[in-house]
Amino acid sequence: MKIKVIVTLKSGVLDPQGKAIQQTLNGMGFENVKDVRQGKYFDLDINENDEQKAKHSAEEICKKLLANQVIEDFKII
């Protein structure tokens, strides 16, 4: 079963890369871009047919490795 995971920085945590991207976009003429936050995206192929079980595994995986919950949040989709 395929599970998608998105890991983002918590709000309030400094994102210097996002800031640099935003400034570049502004410089390129996209002046309407007010803020950019950069995140990570993962495709997990989990050997489970039951969606609940697969999502449960994904949650454990996020907590134990994919996200550092001091500064990051994760979303399973």
Binding site: V13, L14, P16, Q17, A20, N68, V70, I71
Partner: peptide
């Protein structure tokens, strides 16, 4: 505790 993030000035 805590985490080491990217340097502020990238």
């Amino acid at each position: 505790k805590g985490v080491l993030q990217q340097n502020k000035n990238i």
